[in-house]
């Protein structure tokens, strides 16, 4: 678990929303123009600070949806009991300004030199940093083999579906949905568990590098399942969220 990041002071900067793109009924991608953004690695997150008319402020962290050389963007899921996400998914428009700082994190991040093969496992909006990693691989011309196992409630809840459905050599996308069994669906229709992992992921003998992101119970199941399959715990990186009513 050795670190390689160079610590540096994180300062707030004003970013301008350049576009708001609906992804699913409850998820939006927000593109940001941030002139002083210092750059980031795929998989990192950033902090957003909102200020209300009465001066009240709230800050939350969001995964960056962009590769290092993409225009900066975050993808936000609306949480009904959240404070910041309802605003970001319903009220924010192109041209609006908000404050950001980052990048934050650095352990849950991938660069070409980190190699693979890569196993990306996402639950719900846990796909966001994994999408950044996929784009990073594509942009850098890396031939690192990738499997992405992506679980969502219904096909309509799959974020970035159009982008993920575009074929890329060396990338295998495996979907599973947990609340429906629609006609014509060719992916899995069950929760990710040890058996589904055994069926779909790289064998441990290939010493894969795994990134797992999603709600806590999902990440617990997947990370534990991968270790049970022989994955080296130090090569299973996790990012957990959810259940706090915070975002």
């Amino acid at each position: 678990m050795a670190g390689t990041a160079v610590p540096r002071r994180l300062t707030w900067e004003v970013a301008t929303v350049t576009a708001v793109m609906p992804e699913t009924p409850s998820v939006r991608t927000i593109a940001l123009d941030a002139p002083s953004w210092p750059g980031h690695r795929a998989g990192q997150h950033l902090d957003v600070r909102l200020t209300a008319d009465d001066g009240y402020t709230a800050e939350r962290s969001y995964s960056i949806a962009a590769a290092a050389d993409d225009p900066l963007a975050i993808t936000v899921e609306r949480l009904d009991d959240g404070e910041v996400s309802p605003y970001l998914t319903e009220d924010v428009h192109a041209g609006d300004q908000l404050e950001i700082r980052g990048p934050v994190g650095g352990y849950f991040a991938w660069e070409t030199a980190d190699g693979g093969p890569l196993l990306l496992v996402g639950g719900g909006s846990g796909i966001v940093p994994l999408r950044a990693i996929l784009r990073q691989r594509e942009h850098s011309g890396s031939d690192t083999p990738v499997k992405l196992l992506y679980s969502a409630r219904t096909p309509a809840d799959l974020i970035y579906r159009d982008e993920l459905d575009v074929h890329h050599d060396g990338v295998e996308i495996i979907y599973t949905i947990t609340r429906e069994q629609p006609a014509g669906w060719t992916g899995y229709t069950r929760r990710v568990d040890g058996a589904l992992l055994a069926e779909t992921v790289w064998p441990a003998g290939k010493t894969p590098l795994a990134f797992v992101c999603g709600p806590t119970s999902f990440v617990e199941t997947v990370a534990g399942g991968l270790v049970a399959l022989g994955y080296e715990p130090g090569r299973v990186k996790t990012e957990r969220f959810g259940g706090t009513g915070g975002r």
Partner: peptide, 13 residues
């Protein structure tokens, strides 16, 4: 000066 997000308000008491 922080930009104001009109429509954003405190929800957590």
């Amino acid at each position: 000066m922080s930009p104001i997000s009109h429509g954003f308000r405190r929800r957590h008491a």
